[in-house]
């Protein structure tokens, strides 16, 4: 995470503290864009925000990551944000239905599920059907969260029932259990597999096409800095393809 809310606040405090010593070393006007983004965007949005800031002096991006459902609930309850990037069109629709978007959302990336296994693939998993083998220890997301809903769709597409041992609260929890070697396989997003580096191995499977996750982004209706917010959204849609692809996202 390059710039979460807390580091931003701490950074501001340090800057204020440093003012007496080094006055007026920063541009006098700084606008900040507050971005609420799905947890799976944590790494890539950090990099995108960095490039955006380099290209737009005087604009600062404050990133707040969380589960899409939780973030949308916070927005509906009145949390201040300028941009919302969700990991699900359904979740974005909740915010849109509440009349909280300035413009219709645009899908900027897609993500698909992959099987994650511990290094060396001790259980010899080759495809989705293996996750129906009862002797394997398998972690999935709970059906109530987007990655779990996607998992249900891919199993439907294959026509088998998953033999899960645990239904986790989010995709990171599934990944943790694969990392620790506590499960033989878990279903996570391709981007999570790439982010985990050598700690897990990814196994793509054809049924993943049945549940491709779309990532929509939009400017929030009463954004405090609508121009900067709009600029950031355009930047994500038009100028961030390389970073997104590097992180494992597919183009919309």
């Amino acid at each position: 995470m390059r710039r979460g809310l807390l580091p931003a606040v701490l950074g501001a405090a340090v800057l204020l503290g440093g003012c007496a010593a080094a006055p007026a070393s920063e541009p006098e006007t700084t606008t900040s864009v507050r971005v609420f983004a799905a947890a799976s965007l944590t790494d890539v949005f950090g990099r995108i925000a960095g490039e955006f800031e380099d290209a737009h002096p005087g604009v600062e991006v404050e990133l707040n990551f969380g589960g899409s459902s939780g973030l949308s609930a916070q927005l509906v309850e009145g949390a201040p944000a300028d941009v919302f990037a969700a990991a699900s069109e359904d979740t974005m629709a909740i915010v849109a239905d509440a009349g909280l978007l300035a413009a219709p959302p645009v899908v900027f990336a897609r993500n698909r599920l992959e099987i994650a296994v511990p290094p060396g693939n001790p259980a010899g998993v080759t495809g989705l059907a293996d996750l129906a083998r009862p002797e394997l220890t398998v972690a999935l997301c709970d059906a109530g969260v987007p990655c779990g809903a996607a998992a249900a769709e891919v199993f439907d597409a294959l026509g088998v029932a998953a033999a899960a041992d645990t239904l986790e609260q989010d995709v990171k929890a599934v990944l943790t259990k694969v990392r620790l070697g506590e499960v033989d396989a878990g279903l996570v997003y391709r981007t999570d597999v790439l982010a985990a580096g050598d700690e897990v191995e990814g196994i793509p499977f054809p049924e993943a096409e049945a549940a491709v996750t779309a990532y929509p982004i939009a400017v929030v209706a009463d954004a405090a800095t609508p121009e900067s917010a709009e600029a950031f959204v355009r930047w994500v849609i038009d100028d961030s393809g390389a970073l997104l692809e590097e992180a494992g996202f597919a183009a919309p």
Partner: peptide
């Protein structure tokens, strides 16, 4: 312990997951 209905999904976990859905 993870979270599986009837095996490890206790009331607080069910409540938390319910919040998502």
């Amino acid at each position: 312990a993870g979270s599986f209905p009837g095996v490890t999904r206790t009331l607080p976990i069910a409540a938390y997951l319910g919040l998502q859905a």
